[in-house]
Simulated assay, not measured.
Amino acid sequence: MCGLVELYKKPAKKIEKTLDLQVPLELGTFRCYHPIQIIHNDGNDNQVTKALWQFLLEQKDGQWKPSKYTSFNSRWYEGQGFKKSFTKAFRESRCIIPASAFVEGMNKVYHLLKPTDDSPIYFGGLFKNWGDQDNPVYSASMITIPPHPKLADIHNKAMPMMIPEKDLAMWLDPDFNNTEAFTDLMQPQLRTDFDVVKIKGWSQVEPIEEGFRLKADSKSSLE
């Protein structure tokens, strides 16, 4: 499950321009259960908002904190869709998690993946406001979909959903509720080449081996 993303300057500038953001994106490393920046549309403009990277929250000592149920990823199951916890958000409160690289792990082996051409990654996400209009408390999750065969040795249970630039407006439109239109986006696809390198782990994103390249799917398979 994807629980760490990085955002570098060049991809961030491209995201800001593409989505007409009025505030700069924060650069750095973002981990699950901690604040992450999301991009959503308020009905007029695209907004950048801080949210806790854990969809389900509960009140403890008068504060909203992560639930004991893991939900930093919202998994979409082929033929079944989302679990009930995420279906309303899928219709009404979709977001983008901006990134330029991400970490996947399996059996305590971790890899960092980044587009070879330094293009930005637009991860599909869901968000929720647990507070009120005057005191909003946002949470978010990253959508995961069935695994891609090319990622089988990196993570063989799921992969994060990545939205192509041409579908961003539809995805962010809060008034667009026809979720069947997103069916093709839920299919495992690699639209660009990725450079992959094994790293020390979640807390130390340093390479420990020489990397390799995953080639994008052929254009015919993406049509």
Rank of each mutant, 00 (worst) to 15 (best):
K10I: 08
Q133V: 09
M159W: 04
L25A: 09
H34L: 09
E92H: 15
E26P: 11
K60F: 08
N135G: 06
T144H: 07
L126E: 03
G124D: 02
P120R: 01
I39A: 07
K65W: 01
E26Q: 15
W130F: 14
E223A: 09
P120E: 05
K9W: 09
K83T: 13
K108L: 05
P174C: 12
M186R: 05
K50Y: 14
K200C: 09
L113Y: 04
M159C: 07
G124H: 10
W171H: 04
F127V: 07
I154E: 00
K166L: 06
L185P: 08
L25P: 09
A169C: 07
A101K: 04
E6R: 15
D153N: 13
K215A: 06
M162P: 03
I15F: 10
E209G: 06
W64M: 01
D20P: 04
D61S: 14
K198S: 10
K13L: 14
E6D: 05
M186H: 13
F55M: 03
D173E: 09
P149C: 11
N177D: 15
W64G: 01
P164Q: 00
C2K: 00
D175R: 13
E210W: 11
F102V: 00
I163R: 00
L4V: 11
D184Q: 14
F212R: 05
T179Y: 03
F127P: 09
N46E: 02
L168V: 05
Y8H: 15
G131I: 11
